[in-house]
Amino acid sequence: MIIEINDLVKRYGKLTALNHFNLQVKKGDILGLLGPNGCGKSTAIHCMLSLLTYDKGEVKLFGEHMSPTRYDLKKRIGIVPQEVAVFDELNVIDNIDYYCGLYITDKTTRKQYVSEVINLVGLEDFTTFTPKKLSGGLKRRLNIACGIVHKPELIFLDEPTVAVDPQSRNKILDSIKELNRQGATIVYTTHYMEEVEQLCNNIVIVEKGQVIAEGSKEQLKGLIKVNEKIVIEIPDFPSAIKEQLLQLTGIIDITYDNVFVTLNTEKSKTVFTQVLHILEKNQIAFGNFYTQQPTLNDVFLEITGRELRD
């Protein structure tokens, strides 16, 4: 195991931020560490990195006990914080070279590593730019480059795509996949569930300082009642029709946003046909309709009872 956390407890006075928190991350995983704000994710990461002391429990990284003085383990870790942490007075290449120099003393190796990471994150055309001349997306890429330039075995990425343009987001996600292909184990936190679906082979949901669900995206979706969604475009959706539909076996609930009716359903081969029959029987005009599988956001809503962005 790259990460082993057993019964971790962290208190701030009367507040218990981590309540017997347990986590295991295998070599080569991309772990999505998810949960609403204030659930304990950041506290858990800070404890893993020995940036915070904790009241009880055990943290092992690379099979070794982690402590504030384990610099041999810290050299094998890369951290990309949510806040951009670069030097405004240095240009792109000098920023990256500085962070690389904290770990790599050989000048030839350092030059090679800096060149490789610039290509990885797509900053080839901006090496002489200072951060203030970069767009938000390019700053994010620079932030990532500084955190991973020393080729760490374990990388913590804290919401690396916040407020970036689609081009930068795609480049960042591609870079993360490439890092993983090169052997890095990654712990990834984000509020963008589509990124989790795209990247992560294992997902942990944290709530009130505890792991409340863990598994692949398929396993997590199997934990909830919703098996399929039926989405129908209906310009006028009478409440009486909604009540009729709710009587059908297999309908869990129905929402309407003044354009689309969304029916959350359990597994049923006939429910779709029955829904259309009721609409046609009552002469309800409808447009496009389709079915979709449950999403990780549906998992959140059912397991935690609230949106991830709370």
Rank of each mutant, 00 (worst) to 15 (best):
I3W: 02
I3C: 01
I5D: 00
D7N: 15
D7M: 05
K10P: 02
L18D: 10
N22S: 08
K26L: 12
I30W: 08
G38L: 06
K41V: 01
K41T: 01
S42C: 09
S42W: 06
C47I: 09
S50E: 08
L52A: 06
L52H: 11
Y54P: 02
Y54M: 01
D55P: 03
K60R: 15
K60M: 03
K60P: 01
L61R: 06
L61T: 09
E64G: 08
S67K: 08
T69S: 14
R70K: 15
K75S: 14
R76K: 15
I77N: 09
I77G: 08
E83W: 01
V84R: 08
D88P: 09
D88R: 12
L90G: 05
D94N: 13
I96R: 06
T109W: 02
Q112S: 13
V117C: 02
I118L: 08
L120D: 09
E124A: 11
T127Y: 02
P131V: 14
K132I: 09
K133H: 14
K133Q: 15
S135W: 11
G136D: 14
L138F: 13
L138P: 00
K139H: 11
K139L: 09
N143Q: 12
I144R: 04
V149Y: 10
H150G: 06
P152W: 05
N170P: 00
N170A: 14
I176C: 03
K177M: 13
G183M: 04
Y188M: 11
T190A: 04
T190G: 03
N201Q: 12
V204R: 01
K208P: 00
G209E: 13
A213H: 10
G215W: 09
K221F: 02
V226Q: 10
P235Y: 05
S239G: 01
D253W: 05
T255N: 12
V259F: 07
V259R: 14
T262S: 08
E266V: 00
L276D: 04
N282M: 09
Q283W: 01
A285W: 03
F286M: 04
N288C: 03
F289D: 06
Y290R: 13
Q292K: 15
Q293M: 07
Q293Y: 05
L301C: 00
E302Y: 02
I303T: 12
R306C: 01
L308C: 04
